[in-house]
Structure formats: C-alpha cells, structure tokens
Design a binder for these strands. Structure first.
Length: 427
DNA sequence: TCTGGGGTCCTAGGACCC
DNA sequence: TCTGGGGTCCTAGGACCC
C-alpha cells in the first residue's frame, strides 16, 4: 500500500514566536538563547546570513551581535509551548492522523485523504497556519518521513515554492538531481559521528546513500541504515507514531547560574528538579520505579568529572517528599567537596501506571501510594494550580537560590500569564 | 569569566537460567 | 569436573533527534 506523509516544519520557530508580538523585528537579525543565556538555539534568516551557527556560544559572538545590532532573547519556553499547541490544534482539524514530532514539527498521514494536488494543498495549509496562528511554516510531502523531511528543508530554502514541496509526483531524474545537492549530514538520522564514517567509504550525498547496498548501510550505520536507504527510495519504514505514546522517561536538569562547591546549593537544586519531575509524573498519572541522579563539573574545564547514582525506589512512586529524601541520601554519598559543580540532572525511568502496580509480599501498597500520601499530593497540587506554581513547596528547595539559571532577556509570557499580557494603546 | 535541555532507540557485555 | 548453545534481563554507553 502506498503511503503519503506531510511534514509541517515551523521556520525559525522560537524567533517567529518572538516576532509574533514584536512585528518591529520582522527584518532585524534575531537570536534566541538557551538557558543561562549560554548559546544560540534559534536564529532568524538575517542572523543565519551573519554566519551565526546553531549552538554558537554567546561569549564568542558578542562582537558580531554588537556590530550588527542583533536582537537577543532569552528562551521563553512557556510562550513557545503555547504557540506550538495552537498549531497542533489547527493541524488536528485538518486530519486526526497526526504525529506531533517536536515543539515545531508535525507529521500528517495523508494516505487516506482525497487530495488531488498535494502541492497546492501544502501551500494552502502553509497560508492557513500563517494567517490563523501567525507562524511561517514549510511543508514537505512524500512517500516516506525521511523524504518529507528533505522536501520541507528544500521548501524552506527556496522561496519560489511558496512554502510547500510535493515529491510524490517528481520524476526520478529530477529527484536524483535534488538528492545530489544534499550533503549526507543533512539526511535525517545521520549525525556528526556517522557522517564522517560514511564519507570515509565515499558516501557524500543523499543520492549516494540512496544507492548504497542495504547490507553495507546496516553494517556501517546499524539497523537504522538499512531503513534509511529504503526510506530514501520511497519505501516507508517509519510509520506515523501515535501522539499519546506513553513516556519512557522524564528528565529534569539544569546548568547552574554559577559553578558551586556548596552542598546546600546542590541539595536545593536536586530538590527543585525532583519536584518538577514528580509533578510531571503525577500529571501524566505515572509512577517511577528508578531514578538516575547525576552531578557534573564543567565539561569545558580541565578535570571534567561526571558522577551518577542509580537509585531503585523502595516502591514505584511520584511523591516529591519521599523521592527527594531518597535522592538526597545518594547525593550526599556522591558529593565531592573539592569539585566545582556545574550541572545536576534527575532522570526518572521504568515508569508505570498506578493500575499495574503490584502489591508487595504482604498484599499492602507501600506508603508511597497510601491514601495519606495521595491526599497530601492532591492538596499540594491543587493549591499550586489555584494560586500559582511553587506557591507551596518543600523547604529543601529554598536552601539556596544560587543555582538558578539566568534569563535576563526573556520576553513577556504574552499568552499564558495575566500579568504579562501585551498592552495596546488607542489614541 | 562565558558553551542548553529533554527525549528515543540500539547495542554490547555480563549475569543468570535451562 | 568439564562441556555447549540459546534465551532473557540488566546496565552502561553511544548515537540520533529537535
């Protein structure tokens, strides 16, 4: 059975979100920075033209920012998340056969829709997203996800395509000409480690990869390699994934505002990360069986050191207080007073739903899920829901605020916070 | 001085079982 | 005491994505 996928990819998404409320920046070079204002994670076309790469460390580019009057924003993920939801809602009305792949990309399965001309359909959708949400998008349409991805990249770069490229009807020779110009590292699934490996055996372009023997591809790239060759030849190997697939893990981590040797600062950071991860567990109605807690020093400094501790919880749970206490014991055991810590992470895995929780040998549920714990957590979450996130919290979080990252240049949360609504003046 | 955060999947090796 | 293959589970690490 033949398949047709569309990839809807937002152009310079974070920058486009900022411009939505700052139309005065439409033609200015704009960048958005990561947490701690450390490096560049989104660039406008004007910023790309200044040769500011993705991931550029801010301290190395300050001069370029100054010389070119680049407008700089700290990341405002609350705003981007809300805009992303609006786009997903619009696309779900187009078809429920949708996979929300990331904050700025969605795949649609068009196989069952009766669309006579995919190209003009794509241009229409692109127009609709722009007029209803205000974000420019590029759309690629093809028989496999990998091809749809390449098509959308092409549509993004070529203004003559008006936002959409349909590869389903492209003659073979023309498709080969397109593939010839795509370097291997631009193919979805080929990253910085595999690209040199493939180049070493003479595979430089998407065209050469598509003509590679599946056996050799598997040998060099793994199981993924063989599928990639098929995908490039229009045989779909990666189906549309359901949007509500259960999570495998929940991770919270932060680079500190400044490096620290103070155990109280670490304790506060772990408490805070754990609280956020546990809240997400409860929202998803999940319990975690295991946690990895890790501390690391700055990897760009000599003596880089990363320690982790694997924790099996006494019983699967989502209780902030119990889990924090458990993790603090492990952190105390890891702590090295001579290390300048730079970052902390907590990773929750082996997630299960409470319904599948087995009782222990004595047929009773652990205290983690006792009525008492449940009621306390419900009250806790309800208060924060009603009066604002963090209005009540565990005291450990307040041992120190010194670890908290900086975000000095963050724009207002225009669409999700009453205090930060945009204002308009009529005269 | 200053380099993000949140995920998924695959694989290799060891322990253990029959 | 020694011998072998196949299977599963776990851990750790590597690779990718946005």
């Amino acid at each position: 059975m033949s398949t047709t996928f569309a990839l809807i990819d937002c152009n310079n998404f974070f920058v486009s979100c900022e411009r939505l409320f700052r139309p005065d920046l439409a033609t200015r070079p704009v960048v958005v920075l990561s947490s701690n204002d450390g490096c560049v994670i989104a660039r406008s076309n004007e910023a790309k033209a200044l040769d500011i790469p993705m991931g550029a460390p801010v301290f190395k580019y300050r001069q370029i920012f100054r010389d070119n009057a680049v407008v700089i924003f700290s990341a405002n993920f609350e705003l981007y998340g809300d805009i992303s939801t609006r786009i997903a809602r619009l696309l779900t009305r187009v078809t429920p056969q949708i996979e929300i792949y990331s904050v700025d990309e969605s795949f649609l399965d068009l196989s069952q829709l009766n669309i006579p001309d995919y190209g003009s359909w794509g241009r229409q959708i692109s127009q609709r997203v722009l007029s209803e949400v205000g974000i420019p998008v590029s759309i690629g349409i093809a028989a496999s996800k990998t091809l749809a991805k390449l098509a959308s990249e092409r549509a993004k770069r070529d203004p003559r395509l008006a936002g959409a490229l349909d590869l389903t009807t492209t003659p073979v020779e023309q498709r080969q000409r397109i593939f010839q110009d795509i370097p291997i590292q631009d193919v979805w699934g080929i990253g910085w480690r595999l690209a040199p490996k493939l180049k070493a055996v003479g595979i430089q372009t998407a065209l050469q990869l598509s003509q590679m023997s599946p056996q050799l591809a598997k040998q060099l790239v793994g199981i993924h390699g063989r599928q990639l060759v098929s995908e490039l030849n229009g045989l779909s190997c990666y189906p549309l994934e359901p949007t509500h697939k259960p999570r495998q893990s929940i991770m919270r981590g932060r680079t500190f505002g400044e490096d620290t040797t103070d155990p109280l600062v670490i304790e506060a950071a772990i408490a805070s990360l754990t609280a956020r991860a546990c809240l997400q567990l409860r929202r998803a109605n999940l319990l975690a069986g295991n946690v990895v807690v890790s501390l690391s020093t700055n990897r760009h400094k000599p003596g880089y050191n990363h320690q982790s501790s694997y924790v099996t919880l006494p019983m699967p749970g989502a209780d902030t207080g119990l889990i924090t206490a458990e993790l603090q014991r492990h952190v105390a055991g890891m702590f090295n007073p001579r290390a300048a810590y730079h970052r902390a992470n907590v990773l929750f895995y082996n997630l299960i739903s409470p319904a599948t929780l087995q009782t222990d040998l004595f047929g009773t549920l652990s205290v983690a899920d006792s009525d008492h714990s449940q009621r306390r957590l419900q009250a806790f979450d309800a208060i924060n829901q009603r009066h604002g996130a963090g209005i009540i919290r565990y005291a450990a979080e307040d041992l120190s605020r010194a670890w908290q990252p900086k975000h000095d240049l963050r724009s207002p949360r225009y669409t999700t916070n009453w205090q930060e609504l945009p204002t308009a003046q009529v005269s």
